[in-house]
Nucleic acid binder design. Structure first.
Lengths: 237, 237
DNA sequence: ATGCGGTCTTGACATGGATCAAGGTCGCGC
DNA sequence: GCGCGACCTTGATCCATGTCAAGACCGCAT
């Protein structure tokens, strides 16, 4: 293999996540610098790579796989605040210490940036700072939507809303249209929706009975009627 | 009254909220420009000044009073996602349309900025953009905390956590220490905590019975034991 | 002072979702 | 192809919170 001068930019140039992430504001000619700042890692399923309360030294960009972000109470109750997938920027919701934990659901690939290095990059690229503000604003909108779900929706509405959200998140499988592949198990869904696994399961059964979905192997959900699913979700979302 | 050349900056120079808000990054010499960009308004209790779904033409900065931010479902169920008080910057969680509504709880004073004007100000003051990112990050942390509350805490834990949050928010009255004045009624508290007013009321009664608080006229809550309140809240928050 | 309307508290009862307890299903290693 | 463990579904029962229904309290106008 021939090493060309442009090689140092390779990890970023070929990155599947670039177009979807904050890195898209970096021009091609500067990819080399971007690549020099970051450190690519793989995280095995079940491994925790951010721990609530630890010093928030790094930021992350997910390039493949799915991670869950969560907070816990002392007695073990857990709330998953979101799932991070390709292009998701992680660590914003941090001051000096991480305010949440993050764990890989399936095999995750990510880029790690140290805080001071990212700070310098942001100073040189005001557009990136603007992009981060957009990202944060979008997350805030999503968080408010989730508060509405957790505070006011019924179990069936929560599960229907969750499926609609997963559809939007490109969870659509290549082959068949309208089939959602769920990377996470029932326990994670329950902890995301503020329910128990039994109630999640019963809600899937209920959605099936109502003719909105069909289950194939628990992780693959086929949407039979988007309209019905929407109306069962309590609103558009 | 003598009109001096510096007068145009007056609304901002004397602003109680400046030190607490994003405006603090604007230097004194430029207050005049800041003042020219904004438009001061008063909002009467119960009036809605942001409506979900409307074009998001303006941003707001609260300078006095308390506003509630909320989302509703078609059938009238409501979730209050937060209360905005002095220094709070509003409208971030917006793209082209507002994703939430806002209504004055008591008499609110606010500054209104048009979107394009704020954009130009941000371009001249990168520090303000950075400050906004900090603001958004903090709100994200608060939103995640609230998701934990809504998804996993019991009624008493929610009310105890709410009181601790109100204490932190400078809700402490000047005179007595440890007395919290609640600007909002029980219905707003219920819609913020994902409960009914009856359950909020019973939780206050329970906290009283446990010796954590005393109620004076429903809106004034005296904290008898911060430790007890903390432990009843399920954690630090 | 008196009465009125709005807000808060309390009580009795109903219920959605949690908990407890089996089974069922699937994938994987031997 | 068999058995084991992990995960999912289903059923029976329980309980925290919601719902329905009085009252109590308070500020306010007369």
């Amino acid at each position: 293999m021939v090493v060309t001068p442009g090689n140092a930019a390779e990890p970023c140039r070929g990155c599947d996540a670039r177009a979807l992430s904050v890195c898209s504001v970096i021009e091609d000619k500067d990819l080399c610098r971007l690549a020099s700042l970051t450190h690519v890692e793989a995280v095995e399923p079940g491994r925790e790579f951010i721990t609530e309360g630890d010093p928030a030294d790094d930021f992350f960009n997910i390039t493949a796989g799915t991670a869950k972000l969560f907070k816990m109470l002392a007695d073990g109750r857990r709330q998953i605040t979101g799932f991070a997938q390709i292009g998701h920027f992680l660590g914003l919701a941090a001051r000096n210490r991480y305010s949440f934990s993050a764990e890989a659901v399936d095999r995750v690939r990510l880029c790690r940036f140290s805080r001071p290095r990212l700070r310098r990059l942001l100073d040189d690229y005001p557009a990136m700072e603007r992009r981060l503000l957009d990202v944060a604003s979008n997350e805030l909108v999503a968080a408010q939507e989730q508060m509405l779900l957790l505070g006011r929706k019924t179990a069936v509405e929560r599960v229907a809303s969750f499926l609609l959200g997963q559809m939007a998140h490109g969870g659509l499988r290549g082959g068949s249209p309208r089939v959602i592949h769920l990377a996470m198990g029932r326990e994670d869904i329950a902890d995301y929706l503020g329910l128990t696994i039994e109630t999640v399961s019963r809600s899937f059964t209920r959605l099936t009975g109502d003719g909105a979905i069909v289950r194939h192997e628990a992780a693959n959900i086929e949407i039979l009627s988007l309209d019905r699913l929407r109306s069962l979700a309590g609103e558009g979302g």
